[in-house]
């Protein structure tokens, strides 16, 4: 199995497109870093008036909350969260970090995870379909190796590739962030709000967790792209559909969720698990357990489709 994955890895890295992807990813981090440094850095780390500001902010939030209609439940909850965190800062004398630090830069760079996801999807969409396109599928499948193993090795390669891109993103953001903005004043706790209370978390652990949680989204869509690739042998279809869903899926789901309760069964309502650790669920009544169950169901369905069709298929092309 290790050799099969090695084979797939070689096939990915012997093509120049892969290096373009990695280059673009690093370039995106580099570009934002430099732009932030040049235009965004205010230079001052802490506003001396921060306590008054926070109190003012909290007052406004509370006023706003009273005026909200009942249906704006989600927004109300997010205001509640902001109020609680403000209160926690006041109570524990933790001024909000205003200047950019290496930590906040890594945090912000997480928005490039969907960029890394985009590239993973391209790889996933091609990994089965292009063997058919190249005609190499015939020589690949007449090895004394079961088709299940070959497909599994391809899937694992895609997942490893995703982790690899995430690592590149995280590390390049960390190197650049700490080089440009320093480590901040050592006050590196992250304030999270869950179940009505505020907790401090270690920043590094928090960031790694954030990256991993954000990639559940990517991994699910990648799995879907992989399934489409294996079932339809068409990488354009797999790429197009998956990228569309990657960028539009959660938006569309959020719109549906505002109206209908069944939105919670949609894949994209469940891909963002950070809503349970650090925010408010998209649809009322959703729990972490529910989302994990839904994700598992989707995952199993995708896998059954991919493996079922791939192992049974007559290779005629």
């Amino acid at each position: 199995m290790l050799n099969l994955i090695k084979n797939e890895w070689i096939k990915i890295f012997k093509r120049p497109g892969t290096y373009v992807m990695i280059g673009l990813l690093v370039l995106a981090v580099l570009g934002t870093g430099i732009l932030t440094k040049v235009y965004g850095d205010s230079g001052q780390s802490t506003n001396p008036q921060w306590k008054q500001e926070l109190q003012q902010e909290t007052k406004e939030y509370k006023k706003e909350m009273k005026g909200l209609p009942k249906s704006a439940n989600t927004y109300k909850q997010s205001l509640e969260r902001d109020i609680a965190i403000n209160q926690y800062r006041l109570d524990h004398n933790l001024p909000p970090e205003q200047a950019e630090t290496g930590w906040s830069f890594i945090y912000d760079s997480a928005s490039f995870i969907s960029f890394a996801g985009l590239f993973t999807i391209i790889v996933a969409a091609g990994i089965v379909a292009s063997e058919f396109g190249w005609g190499t599928i015939k020589l690949l499948l007449i090895r004394p190796i079961k088709r299940t193993k070959i497909l599994l090795s391809k899937y694992l390669t895609v997942i490893i590739f995703d982790v690899f891109l995430l690592a590149i993103l995280f590390i390049s953001a960390a190197i650049l962030g700490f080089a440009l903005f320093g480590t901040g004043d050592g006050n590196n706790a992250h304030l999270a709000y869950a179940n009505g209370t505020v907790v401090e978390q270690n920043m590094l652990l928090y960031l790694i967790k954030r990256y991993l949680l954000a990639s559940i989204d990517v991994i699910m869509i990648t799995t879907m792209a992989f399934m489409i690739s294996a079932v339809f042998r068409n990488s354009s279809l797999a790429t197009g559909l998956s990228i569309f869903l990657l960028f539009m899926g959660s938006t569309v789901t959020a719109i549906i969720a505002a109206q209908y309760n069944w939105a919670k069964y949609i894949l994209f309502a469940n891909t963002d698990l950070s809503q349970y650790f650090d925010g408010i669920p998209m649809v009322d009544g959703m729990t972490l357990g529910f989302s994990i169950t839904m994700l598992l169901i989707y995952f199993i369905v995708f896998m059954l489709l991919a493996f079922g069709v791939f192992t049974k298929r007559d290779v005629a092309a």
Binding site: N7, I10, K14, R15, T136, K138, L139, R143
Partner: peptide, 22 residues
């Protein structure tokens, strides 16, 4: 099976290595 389609972006040797690893 019909024309042997190989990975065109690899060398002949790298192609053989692919199959040898399997």
């Amino acid at each position: 099976v019909e024309n042997p389609e190989m990975y065109k972006f690899l060398t002949g040797y790298q192609n053989l290595m692919q199959y040898a690893r399997m």
